[in-house]
Design a protein around this nucleic acid. Structure first.
Length: 200
DNA sequence: GAGATGATTAGCT
DNA sequence: GCTAATCATCTCC
């Protein structure tokens, strides 16, 4: 059920982003399994994508993770507050990654509520990349972990969406990326309550 | 070593 | 809708 290592080695990060919709993402951070299926992703196409941290093959201590072979995770801090979860894909030397923007929780909901300091289940528990990471207990501590590990992994449980129920639109919050900001690299399940606000 | 800034969110108006 | 929160990382000096 766990997606094999080879799944992440595809060179087509955009197709993978589309394919990850409906896959189940789980974490086992402190002895409790939490997760759900992915309802929103964004592709970051490495060296040729102005919106990517690795645009122009810019390699630093932070982005080095993305240049590795696919099948690991890249976690980083944004705006000083929010941690974001990315799936690194493609072959070594190609800095491609997929940002997980929203999931539909199915496992360990009570634990996620506690992590989010919430008392009732509301869509905003895993709506938006910062919220997903917080609900799943993801932090920079597990930056670089393999998706074959016992800490974080993705499963295929046979859930699929047809093309009509998946929207492909420009990405969020990347206006500074010029023409690359217009690329339809954001995928989400139409009408799903956990999808983050813009363009819904 | 200092200064600018961002793949955002939550809370208030 | 608007704005504050808040810091690791990058970029120059």
């Amino acid at each position: 059920m766990k997606l094999p290592e080879g799944y992440y080695h595809s060179a087509d990060v955009v197709a993978l982003s589309r394919d990850l919709i409906g896959k189940y993402l789980f974490t086992d951070i402190d002895g409790t399994i939490t997760g759900g299926y992915i309802v929103e992703t964004e592709a970051y196409n490495g060296a040729v994508d102005k919106a990517s941290h690795a645009y122009g093959n810019r390699k630093t201590n932070r982005t080095e993770i993305m240049f590795r072979q696919g099948g690991i995770i890249y976690v980083y801090l944004c705006y000083g507050i929010h941690e974001m979860l990315n799936i690194v894909t493609s072959a070594e030397g190609h800095a491609q990654a997929i940002l997980i923007r929203a999931i539909n929780p199915t496992e360990g909901i009570d634990v996620m509520l506690h992590r989010r300091k919430m008392t009732a289940l509301k869509p905003n528990i895993t709506m938006g990349p910062g919220s997903v990471a917080k609900a799943l207990g993801i932090s920079r501590v597990i930056n670089g972990h393999s998706l074959q590990s016992e800490t974080i992994w993705i499963e295929d449980r046979g859930l699929t969406f047809n093309d009509e129920s998946i929207a492909a639109v420009p990405r969020v919050g990347v206006d500074y990326a010029g023409e690359d900001a217009l690329l339809p690299y954001r995928f989400f399940v139409k009408g799903n309550p956990y999808v983050s606000k813009p363009n819904k």
